[in-house]
Design a protein around this nucleic acid. Structure first.
Lengths: 340, 340
DNA sequence: AGACGGCATGTAATCCATTACATGTGCATC
DNA sequence: GATGCACATGTAATGGATTACATGCCGTCT
């Protein structure tokens, strides 16, 4: 393994000078720089990161806590993070969390103390994961998508409450008044806020809230649990004419369930999803949903984290990216239904 | 930051003894060990990884080269790798490759020389990526799913050729003789081998090969390109009665395309996929496909890599995991078609 | 001419854990 | 009782890059 000393010898200068050239710390004559660069090139020298990190007390590694890569939402966010981090000269260490809190806390604490990471991005903290704030004072942290409302740590997300409200208002505008919701039995703030938005829309339209029209799918937004939740709603004595779902996969489950019961979407039932992942246009009817800029959320998370790592003065602590309602084929006016 | 010296002082021993206890190198009295452990606990000491890695000349990091996390096939493999690596005390560094060769080579070379990783798992090498073999002699490497046939570096995969042959034989057994293939215009060995298997089956059944029945989708197995490829096959003067697809997503594209042209799967067209990702049972007709043990491939890759890192004597260089044909709803006997 | 400042570069301390080698104690052997 | 060995522990060198401080040179100002 060629080391800095070898380069120094080859270039006829001292190790300090080589280091100065490599780190662009200035104060080196252009012709000396040239000699050094030539030697680096010739010997294929690459600085040993362990040594550098030890001395500089950094790692140039970002820790990412993600619940599961298989979910297309998360995998898009991850792509965004990884692309930016590479450009900034960071490596990304991805840890699968499986939603087990105690383990995560221990892991994080240990990795940071060991000096393995310079900062952290979380993708799926629960709204009551207060342990995070203990680390945030010492270590740069950005919460992406999900965050803890009261802790006011740096976070980036879309306005879930507003987006949900708009979705439901779209259904109301089409004449629906019996509107169900399929949400998830997890502890994510996004679920809470989408529920709030759903209720906001009902309240604003003067539609009475109805516990019976609220169905819970499993915490991981699985297709199967979406089907089950839909069954619960559609077998009610007075079933809803529209269902707002807090995720696309759940919405697909709802559509599947409706189909099984002989209901045709959107004629017999309107359905909306959330996220706009790839599947939404893989089968007819194409899903009406809220597009969430996953990749961009990832990108911006990393940029924001970087600002905090280098302690940029004006670094933001709260960023909301715009969402967009996408009208496709799964919602229809209630008139079209009654005319049958 | 508490360091080993602090622990030594607190426990009333030397740094060497602390280190020996932590690394379980033996030769320390049980009561001394107890004192040390108590001090470590009390001070919340965690060894600095940069220092340890510098001294031991390792990183306890595994590099993973993956083309895109959004593909459910890869994300399952990644889960398998990550779970095992965590148990073995390794962190995983995931790099998105985007299929750009030159970049990858430079990246890999640099990361290893910098001492950033102890080994590497590749998920999507092209069948002609010979540059890998240059690193494999110096650095532990495992190729998962895709590998370079001639280089005989450690790899793990399923028997794609055999699986493809079985799929096509299933179609032949149902009476199909005009069988198309939708493959991908990439340079993966799996594509090559699935094509070989397809041809094997035709040859064995005495069915003449027909260039017209071979359609190419894009390199990334996109849904849209599957649709396009299917259109090319189905608009032939004599279209196929069955299509073998080298990936599930392509198969879904084919089914969508068929639907658009008024063809009903499986009555008017039989379709088979490959991989058995989640989508296959999200919509009717459920896809007949070959189940590939993605998660297990990931798990075994990491175990195998570990064997090579610690230079275990009998470490394998070639592993094939069993696949399984899963019959669902997208294939039907040709008789059922002619009877219409 | 002497003093001082700025600049390019060199020397050596530093980051922290590991480990080769040194030390000291106690027990067994002859 | 002297020698030797095993064992527990300590001391100090080591890994490779960064950087505070030292050095030496040249030019400028008084």
């Amino acid at each position: 393994m060629v080391k800095i000393e070898d380069v120094a010898r080859a270039a006829g200068v001292s190790v300090a000078t080589v280091s100065r050239v490599l780190n662009e710390s200035g104060g080196v004559l252009p012709e000396t720089q040239e000699k050094v660069r030539e030697a680096v090139e010739r010997l294929h020298y690459e600085p040993n990161l362990s040594a550098r990190n030890l001395r500089k007390n950094e790692s140039r590694i970002i820790l990412i806590l993600a619940p599961n890569f298989s979910n297309p939402y998360y995998s898009n966010v991850l792509s965004g993070i990884c692309d930016v981090s590479r450009n900034l000269g960071y490596s990304t260490l991805i840890y699968n969390t499986y939603d087990s809190n105690a383990l995560d806390e221990k892991l994080v604490s240990s990795l940071f103390q060991k000096n393995r990471a310079d900062g952290m991005i979380t993708l799926a903290v629960n709204r009551d994961d207060h342990w995070l704030s203990r680390y945030a004072w010492e270590y740069p942290l950005v919460q992406c998508s999900e965050y803890v409302e009261e802790d006011s740590l740096p976070h980036i997300s879309v306005d879930n409450r507003l987006a949900a409200r708009e979705s439901v208002q779209h259904l109301i505008a089409q004449g629906h008044r019996r509107i169900g919701i399929v949400t998830s039995a997890n502890r994510y703030l996004s679920s809470t806020n989408r529920m709030r938005g759903y209720l906001d829309a009902l309240d604003a339209a003067g539609i009475e809230r109805n516990e019976d029209l609220i169905a819970y799918a499993s915490a991981d937004y699985s297709f199967a649990s979406g089907k089950q939740a839909a069954r619960n709603l559609l077998t009610l004595p007075e079933p809803p004419s529209a269902i707002f779902c807090v995720s696309d996969i759940l919405a697909l489950g709802v559509i599947a369930s409706a189909g099984k019961m002989g209901l045709q979407v959107p004629w017999d039932l309107s359905v909306t999803g959330f996220d706009d992942v790839d599947y939404t246009t893989m089968f007819h009817p194409y899903l009406t949903t809220v597009a969430v800029p996953c990749y961009e959320l990832g990108r911006r998370s990393m940029l924001l984290l970087y600002d905090h790592i280098v302690q940029k003065p004006g670094a933001e602590r709260e960023v909301y990216l715009p969402h967009q309602m996408i009208l496709r084929e799964t919602t229809a006016s209630i008139a079209s239904r009654e005319s049958i």
